[in-house]
């Protein structure tokens, strides 16, 4: 049995758990706790360890989706989660510019962990105050050639597109070999 791993990262409350839930064939194994810090009380619970979703490809191949903890004080988990990953998705809440700087930091950190393909998913594109993906590319300093794709993390089809775009990027690199 071969297992592959894609990591979904991004700032606190960017929608990582929802994204994994949208496509996982199992209930997402999620370690969530009530938010304790006042500043982070945007939602009732947050992921403190990791989210864990699964997509069975065939009898011999399973794809796991790992979501990183959103709060900065759990970033010691990031490098552990990034071990052996096939690629990663940086999920950004397009309606919350106050998180863009943190998204940039996370992006740089993950890029330094492992030279694997990645994409940026601009979440909540269904909302009227969402920043367009092309503007997020500029503010997050995303390199040319790296995709910034629109996304609605609660919409299965949209999440499928995100994963497919990442896989297409991986495929392009395989073909370049």
């Amino acid at each position: 049995m071969q297992t592959l791993k894609i990591v979904v990262t991004g700032p606190f409350s960017s929608g990582k758990t929802e994204l994994i839930q949208s496509v996982s064939e199992i209930d997402v194994v999620s370690t969530e706790r009530k938010i304790s810090q006042e500043a982070e009380r945007i939602k009732q619970q947050t992921t403190v360890a990791m989210d864990f979703g699964r997509i069975t490809i065939d009898d011999e191949l399973i794809l796991y989706l790992f979501g990183t903890p959103g709060q900065r004080r759990f970033d010691f988990m990031w490098e552990i989660l990034s071990e052996g990953m096939l690629g990663f998705v940086v999920l950004v809440d397009s309606t919350r510019p106050e998180t863009f700087r943190e998204a940039r930091r996370i992006l740089d950190t993950f890029r330094s962990y492992s030279p694997v393909p990645y994409i940026v998913a601009a979440n909540k594109q269904d909302l009227s105050d969402a920043w367009p993906p092309e503007d997020l590319r500029i503010v997050l300093h995303v390199e040319p050639g790296v995709k910034v794709v629109p996304c609605v993390a609660t919409d299965r089809e949209s999440v499928k597109e995100v994963l497919l775009e990442l896989l297409y990027s991986i495929l392009e690199l395989v073909d370049e070999e």
Partner: peptide, 13 residues
């Protein structure tokens, strides 16, 4: 990762 495996992932998703 081999091309065939990535293609399998794409087809499944």
């Amino acid at each position: 990762v081999k091309r065939g495996i990535v293609q399998k992932l794409i087809s499944r998703i």
